[in-house]
Write a protein that binds this DNA or RNA. Structure first.
Length: 536
DNA sequence: ACAGACCGCGCC
DNA sequence: AAAGGGCGCGGTCTGT
């Protein structure tokens, strides 16, 4: 390792040496990639408070420079510095792979002098950060992203408390007993039979959309697809069992016994988070579909005996973010309410909360179906600054430009194919229409990007602030889940009140760090529960 | 037989 | 006039 004074020190036991330095100095460690080295440290019992993750930072800076998607590992970053060919990012580690402690041959650390390469890349990243129009914001983003890297590894290490017995009982109640391998649960077989009977005995495979559409056609009903929301409008005896089948089949296939076998061990669900896995800065996961846990399964998430779960859920984060981004004071005023949509409805939509929500979502997503057009017009009239903000972002995208989040996370430029399609001068009607549509599509993406990515800025900053605070006032508390705008902490029951109060403080801290002295409120509702399903 | 496209649905 | 953001995953279907 290299010390702050620039001297290199060879150590026989890296984990032990890092633990010692951590306890003494709490340094900000410069790590090639937290994802690769921190899990080993955690297993060795070493926890780091702060770091600068070279790979995550490189990824952010490449996006800022308009060149996203290049290899971001230390070896590639060092090669770029010297104008050499860039080695590709290492493929994601497979679950089966159990690498030894600190293997350096994973392709992501440069040969030769890795410490010198890390120092050079770190210095170069500092220079690029300084060159940004808002270096202080981008530095905050990099710090939060790096803290996110640490938090993600810790979450996988601790795991989300998961009661396999509760999960199994729920599956059995809904689907019948676990079928033998290759078999279908009894309840699904029954429903499939009901569906075929409702079609007059015609064999129908409810898993095959084409089969369902054909069966309806034979019955004299034309449906464009077999989507649930389409079928809901159809009056036919096969519809109720079909909808129930879809619901249960989904549970069985995605989160059934097979999922339980492969993802839950010793009372913990350990998904692998991919920090910054979405261009907007949201996280993704590898395997386990951790960010798509169906609400019905929350009942299986229970605190250990003597422990509690503290859930923290941001209420209507994105409209609040838009209020802060745009400086729309009237929308900021509406954000004073815990239920922003109710307050918005009272202000501009004759108390109709549904209308208020549709209008706001349409502004942020770019949709206008389902009668949203007139509602959007009301919103525009009443909150012109907020609506202008997203419409400006949409126009930038339509013109092929890039947009940035509050902290500076940058949208990718459109593809060459997009430029060719939208840029051609001479066009027949078909090309013209496609060109317009491609432009609109990209405009919707950039419109949403500014809001979604700034919301991710805020949520990531909350996570980092909460993690830091908990080590100080509630050591022993473990952040065990993070999903876009929601955090779960598992802690000894006597610490729960402290954790809940730190949740509040972390939200206030993040709001100030990210948006400065904004009048917009960002409530982060903390709940102390035994079972995730009981969280409000 | 296999890979990749498309479908449909879960979460935010 | 019409225009719905971001993901992961497992199913079927299609092309080779």
């Amino acid at each position: 390792m290299r010390l702050p004074d620039g001297t290199d020190r060879a150590v026989p036991d890296l984990a032990a040496a890092m633990a010692e330095l951590e306890a003494r100095d709490r340094p900000r460690w410069v790590l090639p990639a937290t994802e690769e080295c921190y899990p080993d440290l955690l297993r060795a019992g070493v926890r780091l408070a702060r770091c600068h993750d070279l790979a995550l930072t490189e990824s952010i800076l490449l996006a800022c420079a308009g060149t996203p998607g290049r290899p971001r590992n230390l070896a590639a970053a060092a090669a770029r510095l010297h104008g050499l060919p860039e080695p590709a990012d290492r493929p994601p580690p497979s679950r089966a792979e159990v690498p030894g402690l600190f293997e350096l041959d994973r392709g992501s650390v440069p040969a030769g002098d890795p410490l010198a390469a890390a120092a050079a890349v770190y210095a170069d990243q500092q220079r690029r950060l300084d060159a940004d129009p808002h270096p202080e914001r981008l530095r905050l983003l990099v710090a939060a992203e790096s803290a996110g890297g640490l938090a993600a590894a810790e979450m996988t290490h601790h795991g989300l408390p998961w009661r396999a017995d509760v999960h199994d009982a729920l599956l059995t109640e809904l689907l019948g007993p676990r079928p033998p391998a290759g078999g279908k649960p009894a309840r699904l077989v029954e429903l499939a039979d009901e569906i075929s009977a409702a079609f007059g005995g015609v064999a129908v495979n409810p898993d095959a959309p084409g089969s369902v559409v054909r069966a309806f056609k034979k019955a004299g009903i034309e449906v464009p697809s077999s989507r649930a929301w389409v079928l809901r409008e159809v009056s036919h005896p096969a519809v109720p069992p079909l909808l129930r089948y879809k619901e249960l089949a989904r549970l069985w296939v995605a989160h059934g016994w097979t999922w339980l076998d492969s993802w839950v061990r010793a009372g913990r669900f350990r998904p692998e988070y991919v920090v910054g896995g979405v261009v907007s800065g949201r996280w993704a996961t590898r395997g386990g579909a951790a960010l798509q846990l169906p609400k019905t399964l929350r009942t299986a998430v229970r605190a250990d005996p003597g422990w509690a779960l503290v859930t923290a859920d941001a209420a209507q984060l994105e409209p609040r973010v838009l209020a802060a981004l745009s400086g729309d004071l009237r929308l900021a005023e509406v954000s004073g309410s815990a239920d922003l949509y109710a307050s918005l409805a009272a202000d501009a939509f004759d108390g109709d909360r549904g209308h208020a929500k549709v209008a706001m979502l349409s502004a942020m997503y770019g949709g206008t179906s389902g009668g949203a057009g007139p509602l959007l017009a009301v919103l525009r009239k009443r909150f012109p600054h907020a609506v202008d903000y997203v419409e400006q972002a949409a126009r930038t995208g339509e013109a092929g430009g890039i947009v940035r989040s509050r902290l500076g996370r940058t949208s990718p430029p459109p593809s060459e194919a997009w430029r060719a399609l939208t840029g051609s001068a001479e066009q027949d009607d078909v090309t013209e229409r496609r060109s317009r549509q491609a432009a609109r599509n990209w405009g919707r993406f950039t419109r949403n990007f500014v809001v979604q990515a700034s919301a991710a800025d805020w949520a990531l900053t909350v996570l980092a602030a909460l993690r830091r605070r908990l080590t100080l006032t509630a050591p022993g508390a473990e952040v065990v889940f993070f999903q876009h705008d929601e955090v779960l902490v598992h802690c000894p029951a006597e610490l729960a009140e402290t954790v809940a109060s730190e949740v509040d403080k972390a939200a206030a801290e993040a709001s100030h760090l990210v948006f400065g002295p904004t009048p917009v409120r960002f409530p982060l509702q903390a709940n102390i529960v035994d079972c995730y399903a009981d969280a409000k």
